[in-house]
Every structure is written in C-alpha cells, then in structure tokens.
Amino acid sequence: MLSVKNISKIYQSGFNKLTVLNNISFEVAPGETAAIVGPSGSGKTTLLGLCAGLDRYDAGSITLYDSLLSELDEDGLAQIRNQHVGFVFQNFQLLPTLTALENVMVPMELQGALNAKKKALALLDKVGLADRATHYASELSGGEQQRIALARAFSNNPKILFADEPTGNLDTETGQKVEQLLFNLNRDAGTTLVLVTHDLELANKTEHIIRLKGGVLV
C-alpha cells in the first residue's frame, strides 16, 4: 500500500541547506497500522506529507497504492488523494460555514457520489453525532469536531488514512475516545492507517512504529 525507499527532503534557506529527512525507508502493507514517532523537529509531519503526496521529495521514491508519486503531476496527485486517501489533522480543519453533515458530504460531492446525504448521515451515526448533523463547527466541542473530521476522512472509502496528531488538541479522556473510534472505523473499513503522534501509548496500539530522530530513521 505504501513503499518508501531512501527518501530525502532538503530545504534551501539562503546559502544554507537543511536536510529534514535523510535516506528514510519503510513499507506498510494493506490493512496495517503504523505510527511515526520522534521528538519535535524530527521530520514526522514532513514525512507524512511526502507519503500523502502533499509535498515533493528530493531523492528516493514513494509508491502509494501502486502509483510512483514522483511520476505524477499535481492533477495526478490530487486524483490519488481524492480517490484513495483520507486525512485527519490535529486542528480538525472543518469548514466553519458548513454544518457537520455538509462537512462530511464535501468529499463525496466532489466525487459525484450518489446518495451523499444518506451516506454522510450513516457516518455521523457511526461516530455518535447524528443528532448534531445540523450544527456548525463553532457550535461543537473539540472532541465532537474531531469525530466529524473522522467521519469526513472515511467518506470517500479511502484505501489509506493519514492522521497527523489526531488527538493532539484533545484532553486525555476525549483523546482516548477518539483513538478508539479511529481504530474501530479503520478496522471495519479495512483501511491502512499511518499516523504521526508524540503519544507513545497511542503509537504502541499500532502494528509498526517508525522512529525518527534528526531526520534519520532510528
């Protein structure tokens, strides 16, 4: 599902070069779960973005769902993301002018899916928020917003889900509920899961742990 081989990412700052990731390699098979961990500034989020085709790498190769990302233009990358990838972010990234239901429906409508409203309501029910369907993001708690974001992430039936600190903005109790929901939804859908976290307890719930330090795999 995801094959990362000898990936490096370098940022140019004036005359200086900053190597954020250096020669990273790992694989995640279909249906597996993996966590990327490491201290702040170790390159975790950068690596996740490269794997999801949100940014370009400078060396190596990444194959996502049988597609070599370096061979795709921006439209091709967008198509891969729309058809096969789900995202969950630390800051939820819900659209504030849309209701919970509309936020979940957006990816399905972009794909021209039939019965988008019915499917979105079913997903909201799965995350226990069917009764909040008509509420706007500003009217929901942080935990509720992240549950809406989870429902949205699964709305396009993704083959792989990338989650960046999915419980980072939540208190411990709420975070644990969101974690359980994430793993349950992932298992039921048979989705591959790759998450970034500083929480080793959460990381230990995955099948593989990818440890970074100073941009190097340790």
Rank of each mutant, 00 (worst) to 15 (best):
L101S: 05
L101H: 03
L101P: 05
E102C: 07
E102W: 05
N103E: 03
N103K: 03
V104P: 01
M105K: 01
M105I: 03
V106E: 11
V106W: 01
P107G: 08
P107M: 04
P107H: 03
M108S: 04
M108P: 06
E109Q: 11
E109I: 10
L110P: 03
Q111A: 05
Q111R: 03
Q111L: 05
G112D: 00
A113E: 14
A113S: 13
L114I: 13
L114F: 13
L114Q: 15
K117A: 10
K117T: 08
K117C: 07
K117S: 08
K117W: 05
K118H: 13
K119N: 09
A120G: 10
A120C: 07
A120H: 03
A120K: 04
L121E: 12
A122M: 09
L123A: 12
D125H: 15
D125S: 15
K126W: 05
K126M: 15
K126V: 13
K126G: 15
V127M: 12
V127C: 13
L129P: 03
L129K: 04
L129W: 04
L129M: 11
A130R: 14
R132F: 15
A133Q: 10
A133W: 04
T134G: 12
T134A: 15
T134P: 08
T134I: 14
H135C: 13
H135M: 12
H135G: 10
H135F: 11
Y136K: 09
A137N: 00
A137T: 00
A137I: 00
A137D: 00
S138G: 15
S138C: 10
E139V: 14
E139S: 15
L140C: 10
L140T: 08
S141R: 09
G142F: 07
G142I: 08
G143Q: 12
G143V: 13
G143C: 14
E144P: 04
Q145I: 00
Q145C: 01
Q146C: 11
Q146I: 12
Q146Y: 11
R147S: 01
R147Q: 01
I148K: 02
A149E: 00
L150N: 00
A151R: 04
A151G: 09
R152M: 05
A153Q: 11
A153D: 08
A153I: 08
A153G: 13
